[in-house]
Amino acid sequence: MAVAVRVEGLVKDYGKLRALSGISFEIPEGELFALLGPNGAGKTTTIRILTGLTRPTAGRAFFFERDIFSSPLYAKRLAGLVPQATNLDLELTVWENLLIHGLLFGMDRRSIQMRARELLEFSGLWDRRNHKVKTLSGGMRRRLLIIRALMHEPRILFLDEPTVGLDPHIRRRLWGLIKQIQTRGTTILLTTHYIEEAEFLADRVAFLDRGRIVALDTPQNLMTHLGEAAVDVVTPEGLKTKFFPNREEAEREAMKLSRAGETVTIRRVNLEDAFLHFTGRKV
């Protein structure tokens, strides 16, 4: 399988602040790779560098083994970007937003029309095509933002917190959309600080903390690293969690603790446990 994205020792300094301190990873073609981290971890910075919006201080990056900093136009043609802050033309219509994007990426009129129609139907925005973007709801704008990035059929899609601030049901709908995009063969790099989003969508997850990747594996492996079952114990200092390789051992321990008068719950280990374990912090 080809390597769609290869990042080697990426560093970004903003003045004295080191936003990224030498991160490296690889994404095989067709994979959905998630960067999970708290506010200020460096997720957006990573995406901005890979999409040509920001220059790195040091490090190298390749799309399909070709250096993206020495061939920026090549890289931009392959990449699609859904930025964290919605950047649609509010005064223009839905259709016009897609048209301008298609022209920017060198598409001809015919393919713009066919592709825009297909994507509008796919995302349920066809009926709104002649409405100005400023009349759309937040969820519709997000969908438009995503299909706009798909107009030129990018082979690598960068999604920067695609579902932030949306209703749970709209979020699930977008998850479906993102999964479908992946099924069509697109490589996806997604950032999020919603753990369940990474757990549900990602083939592999990198935990990013203060500009460093502290762990990188499949969600399953990151979790089983800790065990299978967890026991939460309520203490005056907060919730304490203990991990066990299987449910039986967890139950035995829970039994013992509750006999001693503690309040306990048994549950499956989740990705949040893994994140806390590797970073020592909450997302």
Partner: peptide
């Protein structure tokens, strides 16, 4: 305000 400038910068133009 609109941040459309980034859309131009990320495009191969």
């Amino acid at each position: 305000y609109l941040r459309i400038f980034e859309e131009f910068q990320a495009a191969p133009i």
